[in-house]
């Protein structure tokens, strides 16, 4: 019984220590504005990185404005997708793969549709009110009517 009590105390102390772990520090990455998040120009979307992250990972299914969210990804390992993962999601490709593997097993959720072509992405965002995607700043300099840049990074 004494052994059990000791283990109970030990386990509780251990969990308490973990909660206050000092090594959990924030890490941020800084880059020039080389990429842009685009959304439908008619939408009232004003999302920050947290909301973009939650929507891309399908934790959040509507924008805070109430519009149904439709996230689009870019081709795996493309410069745009890599920049989005690092700067907005705060993940690398392996972590994202692991996240979707877990989501598939738990509830059958799959990742956003990948769009390789910039012009197809622009057309999709122009047509769908809740859509968003990432493009390079050079492509953002010539976006068509009906699409606007939400933020650059």
């Amino acid at each position: 019984m004494q052994i059990i009590n000791f283990k109970r105390i030990l386990s509780l102390a251990f969990f308490s220590a973990l909660i206050s772990s000092p090594f959990l520090v924030n890490t941020t990455s800084a880059q020039a504005d080389e990429y842009a998040i685009i959304v439908n120009a008619d939408s009232q979307i004003t999302a920050d990185d947290n909301e973009l992250r939650n929507i891309y990972l399908k934790k959040q299914t509507k924008w805070s404005s109430g519009v149904e969210a439709i996230p689009f990804g870019r081709a795996t390992h493309s410069p745009e997708q890599n920049a989005f993962l690092i700067n907005v999601l705060g993940m690398n490709q392996a972590e994202l793969d692991s996240y979707w593997a877990s989501a598939k097993s738990k509830s059958g959720l799959t990742g956003p549709r990948e769009v390789q072509s910039v012009s197809i992405l622009l057309r999709q965002v122009r047509r769908k009110e809740g859509a968003f995607g990432v493009i390079s700043s050079s492509d953002a300099s010539d976006i068509p009517e009906g699409v606007k840049v939400l933020k650059s990074f």
């Binding site: 769009v115 390789q116 072509s117 910039v118 012009s119 197809i120 010539d142």
Partner: peptide
């Protein structure tokens, strides 16, 4: 040239 690139890109994706 930019239009041509976009056009080629779209055609490529559609073909794929």
């Amino acid at each position: 040239a930019a239009d041509t690139t976009h056009l080629e890109e779209r055609v490529f994706e559609l073909e794929e």
